[in-house]
């Protein structure tokens, strides 16, 4: 017989602060509108009508890093672009997350050469990696749901 059962009749839900905040963080996570290469097209496809990412509260892509929570690194990161990506990541307000979408962003992919950073995790900390070249929009959506799972289980002490 806990307090919840008594309060339920009054239309009140009790939860922990941790759970409530983590839940709200996942319900409107706005990605940064930033595409690099091939994967950006699949990211656009995921945003568009057929796959419709707005089902997950993500229909709004912000062009300004100051207004977004999530950096989807969609495509290969070159040596020339790497400082820009880092700067974009630094400009995201806390709490922030990053997804490495596709093989190139995760590990360099087929481009094992002088021009490509072998995985964007050499530049910014990455939360979720998505495999595929390019990943299907379903793959991206799965990656985002995996990130939600991660965020929902974050501990209060780890909050940024």
């Amino acid at each position: 017989m806990g307090i919840e059962q008594k309060l339920a009749n009054l239309g009140i839900v009790t939860t922990t602060l941790e759970k409530a905040v983590n839940w709200s963080r996942t319900r409107a996570m706005w990605p940064l509108l930033s595409g690099l290469a091939c994967c950006a097209i699949e990211m656009m496809a995921a945003e568009a009508s057929h796959y419709d990412m707005s089902r997950f509260g993500m229909e709004l892509m912000r062009a300004s890093p100051r207004q977004s929570d999530l950096l989807i690194v969609a495509g290969r990161v070159t040596r020339k672009m790497a400082p820009v990506i880092r700067r974009l990541y630094d400009q995201l307000p806390d709490p922030k997350w990053a997804i490495a979408m596709g093989d190139c962003a995760s590990c360099g992919g087929v481009f094992n050469n002088y021009a490509i950073v072998q995985g964007v995790d050499e530049v910014i900390p990455v939360d979720v990696y998505i495999a595929g070249c390019p990943p299907r929009p379903e793959g991206l959506i799965h990656g985002i749901l995996t990130l939600y799972e991660k965020v929902e289980n974050e501990r209060l002490t780890k909050w940024r």
């Binding site: 091939c38 290969r76 070159t78 672009m81 094992n112 050469n113 021009a115 070249c133």
Partner: peptide
């Protein structure tokens, strides 16, 4: 040059039919 991938150099290091996967990208 922000997306300079080094495809031309990389293709020289691959065989003709292997290098084809680079052309898609």
């Amino acid at each position: 040059g922000f997306l300079h991938t080094g495809v031309e150099k990389n293709m020289e290091a691959k065989r003709y039919e292997q290098a084809e996967v680079m052309t898609d990208r």
